[in-house]
Amino acid sequence: MIPYGKQSISQQDIDAVIDVLKSDWLTQGPKVPAFEQAIAQYCKVKFASATNSATSALHIACLALGLGEGDTVWTSPISFVASANCALYCGATIDFVDIDLATGNMSVVELEKKLIIADQSNCLPKVVIPVHLAGQSCDMQSIHKLALEYNFKIIEDASHAIGAKYLNKPVGCCQFSDITVFSFHPVKIITSAEGGMAVTNNQEIAKRLRRLRSHGIISDPAEMTEQSHGPWYYQQIELGFNYRMTELHAALGLSQLNRLDSFVKTRNIIAKQFDKFFTEQNMQSLLVTEDCYSSYHLYILRLEFSNQALQAMMIKQLRAQGIQAHLHYIPIFLQPFYKQLGFDKSAFPNAMKYYSKVVTIPLHPTLTAQEISTVKNTVKSLYQQLSSANKSTPSQ
């Protein structure tokens, strides 16, 4: 089976982890701050806080911005559920903004429409979480302009987008956001096995992120509510969590960071090969705009199926022929848990149309030339077969 995503582990990565196993530190040692500093330098941002997952990073990012009961978060419906769950963890309300069908990212037009209505109803969001689907940044400059006008905070969910660029600056520089979150899950651009990172240019936000990831505890005497009792003394000053990254994970992530640009370059080379081939077959991928350099975490095709049964058939048949096709993502509001919250799918027509048209095919740096050829030709053949069926099938 050719997987849709796969980690690339080198001997250098293995040696880095073994070195930690032989050291005095397995948790809370020097590798975590070294990884944080390296990410901050790479992204040209001031502060970075490592966590045990991007989900954890999203959670404490919301809390660090003061999100709580009575507040509302808006995000994209085309994302993994963590992008929405983080709001509910804080006791806030979640809502969605429909997408731009060409890019799959949050639509600025739909966001502005929704903000105008919310302003009239006095129910504006406290936080908006744009999701950089497949590795391409959202139109952050326009979203930031709306944030200034309607007074909301921005968390970039860049779980797919480490190594990407927007307006020739690294995603994660936080020029147009308060916090950016990355994921280092094995299918992402680089991996720490499991792990995440929240980056920011705000020192007070950074302090709270680090406090929240470690039980709400501080050990700096200058931040304590009373004089320190001694070098062993610490204080819990708020309710936090055990969201810390281990030394083992940080060592792997730090080693992988050395190959980040190479990974992204290879992903772009393969994506361009796919683009050329599939365009010639009248097949389209998600549009990457001129102001973006995508990290291509995913390669998503937008195909013209008259019904979802044909889409499902294509994914099943690709898998039967050894290609792990996938679908990113099921609109979050269609999940049973979110259905009970009362979302009306007709309010998000582009997300629903997107869901019925897309197929994710394999894209990762370890793909061989033979695998790339197999993916292209198998997708082409199956789509041609299904297109014939498509023409004879009434539209929904």
Rank of each mutant, 00 (worst) to 15 (best):
S8M: 13
D100V: 01
Y42M: 01
F348Q: 03
V131I: 10
Y338H: 03
F80H: 07
K376N: 08
D275W: 07
Q28L: 09
T225A: 13
T366C: 10
N350L: 03
M352I: 15
S356P: 04
N105C: 10
A40N: 06
G216P: 12
A92Y: 00
N377I: 03
K153I: 00
K153F: 02
L111R: 06
L124Q: 02
L67E: 00
S387N: 14
V187I: 13
K345T: 03
D98P: 01
T393F: 04
P331T: 07
S142M: 06
L254I: 03
P3S: 12
I116N: 12
T266V: 10
M106S: 04
F152S: 05
A222R: 11
L341Y: 05
G66D: 00
K44D: 07
Q7D: 09
G322F: 08
L334K: 09
P33N: 05
N202S: 11
H185N: 13
T72W: 00
A48W: 03
N377T: 09
D344C: 02
Q321M: 13
C138P: 09
Y233G: 06
L212M: 11
K391F: 05
D261V: 04
T51A: 08
Y338N: 00
H132V: 02
P170R: 05
E247L: 07
Q385M: 07
A38I: 01
R211K: 15
L212S: 09
H229C: 09
A193K: 14
S137P: 05
L167W: 06
I190H: 12
P186M: 13
E69A: 02
Q120N: 15
L287G: 01
G104T: 03
I323E: 11
K391R: 11
H328R: 03
V131H: 11
Q227A: 14
R213I: 10
M314F: 07
C86V: 02
P186A: 09
L310H: 10
Q141S: 12
Q28W: 05
Y299I: 03
Q203A: 15
P231W: 07
N122H: 13
R244D: 04
G91M: 00
S219N: 14
L146E: 01
K316P: 01
Q175I: 06
T225R: 15
Q141P: 03
H185G: 05
G342C: 06
I179F: 04
L257C: 08
S23T: 02
R210I: 02
P125D: 04
N122F: 04
E69I: 00
K44R: 13
F241I: 02
W25R: 14
N282Y: 12
Q311I: 03
C173P: 09
L101T: 03
L382S: 05
I117A: 15
C292S: 14
T279N: 15
I154T: 01
D139H: 14
M313K: 14
Y293L: 15
Q256G: 12
I60L: 06
